[in-house]
Amino acid sequence: MHELSIAQSLIALIEDEMAKHGKKTLLTVKIKHGRLSAVVPEALEMGFTALTMDTRLAGARLELEEIPVVLRCRACSREFTPEGSSAFAPCPGCGEELGHAVVSGRELYIEYLELE
């Protein structure tokens, strides 16, 4: 799916940061991805491996961490994570179904790089 273009953008950012810090070797990339952003880790790893083959980024370790969905109830302001497989759910505090704000779960960012 869209993991290949995510891998492309990821590589551009990494190269930018390496240049900025004057480093030549990438050891690790730590990525945080919200559950709603629907990144499939295996697909992203495959895309990254394919696109970095025979480049100086080849062999780097991709560490992915999923950020759970956190909603804020519009009625009682309680923050909660929907249980089970569904991304949205009624508020466990007051039962309100509609209008919850997404506090987290849409992220897709590089947290840190390990460079040498």
């Binding site: 995510i6 953008s9 990821l10 551009a12 950012l13 940061e17 810090h21 480093k23 990525i31 897709l108 960012y109 590089i110 947290e111 840190y112 790089l113 390990e114 460079l115 040498e116």
Partner: peptide, 12 residues
């Protein structure tokens, strides 16, 4: 050396 980045991957 660990470098904090915190950049949106789709920022471009």
């Amino acid at each position: 050396m660990q470098i904090p980045v915190v950049r949106n991957i789709l920022e471009a």
